[in-house]
Design a binder for these strands. Sequence first.
DNA 1: GTGAAAGCGCTAACAT
DNA 2: ATGTTAGCGCTTTCAC
Lengths: 340, 340
Amino acid sequence: MVDKKKPTIHDVARVSGKSLGTISRVLNEHPSVSIKARAAVEEAIKKLGYTPNAIAASLRTRSTKLIGMMVTDLSNPLFAIMANTAENLLQESGYSLIIANTHDNSDAEVMLIELFIKRKLDGLILSLHDEKNPKLEKILKSISVPVVLLDREMSLPFDAVMTDHEHGMRQAVEYLLGLGHTRIGLVTVSELASPGRGRIQGYAKAYENAGIEFDKNLVRCGSLDADFGYQEAISLLGLSGPPTALIAGGNQILPGILRALTRLEISIPDDISLISCDDTPLSELSKPAITVIDRDISSIGTAAAKLLLRRLEGSDDGGARQVVLDTDLVLRASCGRRDD
Amino acid sequence: MVDKKKPTIHDVARVSGKSLGTISRVLNEHPSVSIKARAAVEEAIKKLGYTPNAIAASLRTRSTKLIGMMVTDLSNPLFAIMANTAENLLQESGYSLIIANTHDNSDAEVMLIELFIKRKLDGLILSLHDEKNPKLEKILKSISVPVVLLDREMSLPFDAVMTDHEHGMRQAVEYLLGLGHTRIGLVTVSELASPGRGRIQGYAKAYENAGIEFDKNLVRCGSLDADFGYQEAISLLGLSGPPTALIAGGNQILPGILRALTRLEISIPDDISLISCDDTPLSELSKPAITVIDRDISSIGTAAAKLLLRRLEGSDDGGARQVVLDTDLVLRASCGRRDD
DNA sequence: GTGAAAGCGCTAACAT
DNA sequence: ATGTTAGCGCTTTCAC
């Protein structure tokens, strides 16, 4: 590699005998450039091996073509799928996606948003830990680029892609109640955000509609990781009055619960019934296959990217828009009747 | 939101009564700033709500603190985990990670690398489709930032994180041969890159060592997605002399094969033995649990980030370094003896 | 259609 | 320790 300085637009101007303005016009496919001039410029570009510097352009245009996405943990397939489909769409429009893990840490979230602001990203896709964190609200209130929330409800007028978790969970619990289960254990994510809260509300409502009181001790909210699922399952099954059915309120919670069941040698659906949230290869291919509250996860990323692009391309400057995904209860072989 | 222009370093200078240089020094924690001056500057910053513009700084310093990562498809947990751990480490050093999906398309790869060059990223982590693509080689040869290859072998002097796929596969095939299987089907990824080639070599070597010729028709290379696994499994099992054991040579191929087995009502391990690559919740929690060629996937991302940081922080300007991961054959319940 | 010139917001070298 | 100055490489009026 020769230690030659990178050619700039000035070099192209010199070599092609054209002015800076013309070079810039050629680069940006501006219509008013003569065919001849364009050819001269392109020749010089090729000759020099010139590459435009997007940083310099960004400084001028105040647009970086960069979108920031914050998630708890990219290794969660849920977030990976959302990031994947969002990136696919954004890439088509020339945007690149920056991904940052927050590990459900509100302080990290604030720091990362500050970093995103410094970096002058054009838009943000956020899955926040705590919807009510005042620090976060404060910094987000002052933000001047479009923001799309993933499965979060805030008091700020941001676009959002939501899921009707309450409905999904209610349906699942009603199904189990219909099978004769009255003690249904629920292990789900934190109550600080919409998915956790929605699921608990749906759970409570199903009991309420059935006129049955539920045992609060059977509901465990915490985190979305597998270890939490494992521990809470062990704890629930160790109760003096253990649940006869379990709901994994989060895709990562399922493996944790399955590990617990394997360890305790409890079998599905004879000893216990099981329902999970979000379909995965594991839920589909488990033996028996697991009944799930399904939703189209890839469409979440797509919807988020679309909402963002609409703002970025200026075709939408109305109020906050919400896309709400439905859920489906996919019946499989993991739930059994219970008559006691 | 008031439509006030964003304050710049000039505004901070004006308000604090200090010079640009001093502001910049405070911002960059340069030691030679008096306590008094620092206080004045910080007060002005707070008062104005000033946020530095990283784009402008990048233009001057020629460093963006941005790393680009190219993968086939982020929705593959393998890549998601690698991206996750890489991001975790890079974040600690103030770098952000840009992720781009290539969908195993070499043209897209070239375009994306060009985009990365324009964007002046500080380093690249690449999982390429075709190690021998001349266009790619050409553009990579001219690259002036550190590059780390993921599981790829190129003729260019880049750092790389490799896995000894050949060894892993040889071990797996030897294990199956030892159980009496002689017709072992292998469904794996493209031969254009190191993992596919390594696996096939390991497969062939195991047969060679055993003094048995293998049926080339039992080896299927193509892509890493589940559909490919499904189709090839159906095809292999439809052969007049079908295999008695199957190896899923890629984490996504396993669900495809399991779907095929479910559909054909072929059961493991009685009707067929099965081994997969890379441990996942599915392989672990399947009934029966699947024997896998395991490796520590999260350490791939970590290792890649470490290699990159070493270059970026200037503590390494030696030749290309390689980190090679070992594999372990994790014996579970998916393989049976075969004596025919 | 094209060129000249101003400046985006910052850093770093130099001077004091 | 601090101020001054000159760009980094580009886009974009504004003339012509």
